[in-house]
Design a protein around this nucleic acid. Structure first.
Length: 873
DNA sequence: CTCATCACG
DNA sequence: ACGTACGTGATGAGA
């Protein structure tokens, strides 16, 4: 017997949306800002309704056009809240999804989804087919018959109630025909159907059990006593009209019939791209699981001996080093893939590292090498006393320059962005989390070789792409050389004074324990001081302090809130101190200990392809957020020391971002002030306040505006920052932009440019795409506009320091200096300097930084020397 | 695994 | 009426 499936698309879609859109939750989005929560949930539901067994299926949708119900009754569905914009955007995507599955999505003006389903269901039932209807709308229960089952979705797909005629009687004590009359009597608030006021489900069922039909009830209306009888007599017309409205139409004039809705083949490739575009990667993985067994059409060649390896080392190759862990300082090398575009090889770490020929090959600049993540390879080789030269292409860096959002992605996703699909997800090969392990050798060797193959295959295309975008210099002259600089910095590491570390650990530990006792005492009961939830209950319930409920999970207890409560209760200052100290203890003392290597150093990893602006980031440990703003925190810096008898030298740019802005926007007054070495915040304050002398508050306000401008300021946030009314804040901004009119022009121009081109760029042609600018959601679009302002400034500053690092590194190498660059913190460099080079370094380091690029303003640097990091002030 | 919090430029 | 500054990483709590 033929079996057909009919799906109430609208109802399911709403369920899908609201299942994942509860108030306060952030809706799921793709990386470019498209909302995907409804698509995501819809896919999950669809996969359960439409399986490989399904042969005939149609998904019905409503249209925006009025139906005859609207015409018959102008109040029909009146007062419904409009569909949220975030959901509306996803409707075309869901339609596309259904189509890619080979399934008909159908709607027709003048009909509702119910009517289309009803018509097809009854047609099928008459032909003896069996029918499954999926919806979350009870109205459809009137369609149930011996052939037709209605599956009502409750919560998501977790609970489904299957209604057959028997089930209907069991649940409502009514037949399917009576379901119409039930609704006619009850009415339906959500569709604005009146029914008979005062008659709810209970009364309606009672009436129907006695009289069977609405018509019969009305015929016997005079027999019904009391208030109920009165109501029925008074609202009989309303009941009749309601019945018309809730009756599903079974004779729609539609283009499909039950024999023309056969499911077609799934468009697998397109569906994968659909998922990828929306960042719905779980579904991609799911689809590719079975494909995994299907071998690629090429075989990898394992080079089993040193001589087999050395035989191929007479050519340019792509090389891929596969590590067991993202932290390559301590990772194991699982193998190396090599490819020349024709053959794809793989070797074990043992064979590779014991080959002198391989060592020679790596160092030989004559052979070009193409890699993925040069810095990782370089650091690994340094730990193994090896080196690599002649690398002319790095897939990771190239992809990152083409689109900075790609840097965060894994190998598979990067290459599939360039439509290269012959690659598996790492998770599918190795498993993930604690389950990560090596599978059979053939499987993972193939995987490693496939990466080398991909690098070789994509190299020319990506280089051409970079050339077209005028970014090849950025790769060749900045990012690739920088990889080498960073690799040496990471490998060199930062020395830790273990005595100082344990001294501070002890001190903090004692104080934290003491504070904890005092806090518990003041609170009057035991609780976990580190739990914001429990702390909120103590403060705002037990102690009844004035509060603002802020976060979606409960009370906010962050430092702003606590500061406002200062003085209201002695517990507050204790908590503030506890917070500060436990931050220092767990993040900087314990965190540091955990990252300490046997050489008593920490070896951070600079992520070179991660940020969307071009900055670096640092992890394991993060050395770019070591405390400095409070004296307490700053003490942590005493833990970091140079080599024996050496010194630290720190040099930083002063106001590099404002200078970049002044130069890019050609702001005359700013350029003049900078070139006259004036204090820029004081200068700005004087101009805004029209005074020759300004106080520190006024300078602070001017500084806040200067900063705010860089971030794409709003009056509201500025007012919060400098504690004035939003109105006053707006006046500051207006005055500021009048004072520096070029900034205003720049802000307008850059946003226009971004909207036209979809990206903004830095002085070195680093790009950031801003898809949010196209969003119809206000907050998204505003974010895009601020990004358009900020990214070129932050990114250009990053470019400049990168260039300075390369210049300095080359100088140190060429002149055979012992001093070494150790750290980079966005606008500053820290070097380990040997005494005899100190005077020269104090001269050369700031100079190289100042001369890294030539702007319309001079760059200024300051420079300090000290015995610990703390002493650099 | 997500959230709230807080450290940096 | 809306929602409220750019870029990061690490931690403990709690689901």
């Amino acid at each position: 017997m033929k079996k057909i499936t009919l799906i109430d698309g609208n109802s399911i879609l709403f369920r899908a949306y609201y299942a994942t859109a509860y108030p306060g939750a952030k809706l799921m989005q793709s990386s470019n800002g498209t909302y995907t929560n409804a698509v995501f949930a819809f896919v999950g539901m669809f996969e359960k309704m439409v399986t490989s067994e399904t042969t005939d299926v149609l998904v019905a949708f409503d249209t925006k056009e009025p139906t005859k119900r609207h015409i018959a009754y102008e109040g029909y569905k009146a007062g419904r809240t409009k569909m949220p914009e975030e959901l509306g955007q996803q409707i075309p995507l869901v339609n596309q999804y259904i189509d890619l599955n080979g399934v008909v999505a159908y709607s027709k003006a003048g009909y509702e989804a119910d009517d289309i389903i009803g018509t097809l269901a009854k047609q099928a039932s008459a032909k003896g087919y069996s029918v499954d209807i999926y919806s979350s709308d009870k109205d459809l229960l009137q369609l149930v018959d011996e052939q037709i089952t209605v599956h009502l979705l409750k919560k998501g797909m977790r609970e489904v109630h299957d209604f057959t005629p028997e089930k209907l009687i069991e649940t409502y004590e009514l037949t399917h025909n009576q379901m119409i009359d039930l609704k006619a009597l009850m009415g339906d608030a959500s569709d604005n159907i009146p029914g008979i006021p005062g008659v709810g489900e209970k009364t309606a069922i009672k009436l129907l059990k006695e009289y069977e039909t609405l018509e019969n009830i009305l015929e016997h209306q005079d027999d019904i006593k009391g208030k109920l009888g009165e109501r029925i007599r008074e609202h009989r017309d309303s009941a009749i009209m309601s019945k018309e409205l809730v009756t599903i139409q079974l004779d729609c004039d539609i283009e499909y019939d039950v024999d023309s809705i056969a499911k077609k083949d799934i468009k697998t490739e397109d569906l994968i791209h659909f998922y990828q575009d929306l960042d719905l990667h779980v579904f991609v993985k799911k689809m590719e699981m079975p494909v995994k067994q299907e071998e690629s059409k090429w075989n990898h060649i394992e080079l089993k001996s040193v001589s087999e390896l050395e035989d191929i080392l007479n050519q340019d190759l792509s090389l891929h080093f596969e590590f067991s862990d993202y932290n390559y300082h301590k990772a194991e090398l699982w193998g190396i893939g090599l490819s020349n575009g024709n053959n794809n090889y793989v070797i074990s770490a043992d064979v590779a590292l014991s080959s002198i020929g391989f060592d020679m090959y790596l160092k030989d600049e004559k052979y070009q090498k193409y890699v993925y993540d040069l810095k990782a390879i370089k650091v690994f080789l340094l730990w193994n006393k090896l080196d690599i030269k002649g690398v002319s292409f790095d897939l990771l860096l190239a992809a990152y320059l083409i689109n900075s959002h790609l840097g965060k992605e894994e190998f598979k996703r990067i290459v599939s962005n360039f439509y290269y699909e012959d690659i598996q997800y790492d998770d599918n090969i190795y498993g993930k989390g604690s389950k990560k392990a090596l599978p059979e050798k053939d499987i993972y060797f193939h995987h490693i070789a496939s990466k080398a193959k991909a690098i070789y295959a994509l190299k020319d295309e990506l280089i051409k792409n970079l050339k077209d975008d005028e970014q090849l210099d950025l790769l060749k002259n900045i990012e690739l050389p920088l990889s080498e600089v960073l690799a040496e910095m990471e490998f060199e590491g930062l020395r830790v004074d273990k005595e100082e570390l344990s001294k501070q650990k002890e001190g903090l530990n004692t104080r934290i324990n003491q504070l904890e006792k005092e806090i518990i005492h003041l609170a009057g009961r035991e609780f976990n001081v580190s739990s914001p939830k429990q702390l909120g209950e103590i403060l705002f319930e037990d102690l009844d302090l004035p509060n603002g409920k802020k976060t979606k999970t409960g009370y906010s207890t962050n430092v702003d809130v606590l500061n406002k409560l200062q003085g209201k209760h002695p517990i507050i200052e204790k908590i503030l101190e506890y917070r500060q100290l436990s931050k220092l203890y767990s993040t900087y003392i314990i965190g540091l200990e955990q990252n300490l290597f046997e050489d008593d150093k920490v070896h951070t990893i600079y992520m070179q392809a991660l940020t969307t602006t071009g900055r670096l980031s640092s992890l394991d440990p993060n050395l770019q957020n070591i405390p400095i703003r409070t004296e307490e925190g700053r003490q942590i810096r005493k833990i970091f020391i140079p080599k024996e008898n050496h010194l630290f030298l720190g040099a930083d740019y002063s106001q590099i971002e404002l200078r970049v802005l002044a130069s890019m926007a050609n702001v005359k007054k700013l350029i003049e002030a900078f070139n006259n070495h004036e204090d820029i915040h004081t200068k700005t304050a004087k101009e805004i306040f029209h005074q020759d002398e300004v106080d520190s508050e006024q300078r602070r306000a001017a500084k806040a505006v200067n900063f705010g401008i860089i971030y794409g300021i709003g009056a509201w946030s500025l007012s919060e920052d400098i504690h004035v009314s939003p109105k006053e804040a707006q006046r500051f901004i207006d005055d500021y932009l009048n004072l520096y009119p070029e900034i205003k022009t720049y802000m307008e121009d850059i946003v226009t440019y971004a909207k036209e081109n979809d990206y903004v760029k830095t002085i070195m042609n680093r790009r950031r795409y801003i898809p949010e600018l196209k969003s119809s959601v206000y907050t998204q679009r505003s974010f895009g506009e601020r990004t358009a302002l900020n990214a070129p400034i932050q990114g250009s500053a990053a470019d400049i320091l990168k260039k300075a690092m390369i210049d300095l590194y080359r100088y140190l190498k060429k002149e055979n200096k012992k001093s070494k660059i150790l750290l980079q913190v966005h606008d500053e460099l820290i070097l380990d300097v040997v005494q005899e080079e100190l005077e020269e370094m104090k001269e050369i380091v700031p100079k190289m930084m100042r001369k890294a690029v030539s702007l319309k303003v001079e760059l200024e640097t300051s420079c300090d020397v000290g015995k610990t990091w703390y002493d650099l002030k």
